[in-house]
């Protein structure tokens, strides 16, 4: 038996840097440092663990959509241990929304061939957290999402979803789409050996025509949502800071009382 895992990853602006919008109100990806979205590292890690714990012949492919620089995200995943990578790159993709992203991912996943798709819980830039559900809808396969524990055995994926009001145990037959949270287990650091090996691993490049997608289905023009304005939030006005000289608790209580909280 073989098991083909596709891990979707995103190259995002560094959240610890200054993130902003470009003139066309898309996320500025040119003037900022980017990296593999931290939340996708957990997806790569879980895919590698599934691979290591399996008796099957497992192949882990990482897939990303994005400009040239997005290859950095693929290289990081390859150096962690993924086997190969696919980079979907096309100028017409600029400004694609979540619905369009799910179309491109689904087409690329189908073209690559898959038994299991593993995604992170959300990107750290858009933070919608809906792409895995959309990809499952597109592919017509079960969604087993927001897992803090995941395992695959005999063609079945099982996992634990810690929801707002309950913890649920989930189960579905492959093929399926899984997403994992930051509670699923710390991602490994690439080893020196891994980094060297990654340089020899294949990275395939596809454009929209390879995926038989028309340019007007994606990009800013094909987006079904429109950002009309983006305004930088005014810095909060400086508040009162006091040093505790034994009266800090009392002073804080007075502030809270003045604001009618007590």
């Amino acid at each position: 038996m073989s098991l083909r895992i596709v891990v979707t990853v995103k190259y995002v602006p560094d959240a610890t840097g200054d993130r902003h919008f470009a003139d066309d109100l898309t996320v500025d990806r040119d003037d900022v440092d980017g990296l593999l979205s931290e939340l996708d590292e957990y997806a790569v890690e879980q895919a590698l663990q599934i691979s290591e714990n399996s008796d099957d012949d497992v192949e882990v492919t990482v897939l990303t959509i994005g400009p040239e620089d997005a290859k950095d995200a693929l290289r990081k995943a390859l150096s962690m241990g993924a086997d190969k990578a696919i980079h979907v790159e096309d100028d017409d993709l600029h400004g694609t929304d979540a619905i369009g992203t799910s179309l491109v991912l689904a087409k690329a996943i189908e073209k690559a061939g898959y038994d299991l798709v593993v995604s992170g819980m959300a990107s750290t830039d858009g933070t919608m957290g809906v792409v895995p559900a959309l990809v499952a809808e597109r592919l017509g396969v079960p969604q087993v999402t927001l897992l803090s524990e995941v395992s695959v055995e005999d063609g079945t994926v099982k996992g634990r979803r810690d929801g707002d009001s309950a913890t649920e145990q989930l189960e579905a037959s492959l093929p399926a789409v899984v997403s994992v949270t930051d509670q699923s287990g710390e991602a490994r650091y690439p080893s020196f050996k891994g980094i060297m090996a990654a340089k020899k691993k294949p990275v395939q490049s596809w454009d929209l025509s390879d995926l038989e997608i028309d340019a007007d289905e994606v990009g800013l023009a094909g987006a079904w949502t429109k950002v009309e304005t983006a305004t930088e939030r005014p810095a909060r006005t400086a508040g009162t800071i006091v040093k505790d000289e034994g009266e800090g608790g009392k002073q804080l209580a007075e502030f809270l009382a003045s604001q009618k909280f007590i």
Partner: peptide, 24 residues
């Protein structure tokens, strides 16, 4: 965090928090 606050206390939370609780 102090860049965001309306009111901040620089101090040991083990002193300030229980004192605040009692005061509330």
């Amino acid at each position: 965090i102090f860049e965001l606050v309306d009111y901040g206390v620089v101090g040991d939370l083990f002193d300030v928090v229980p004192a605040l609780t009692e005061e509330v």
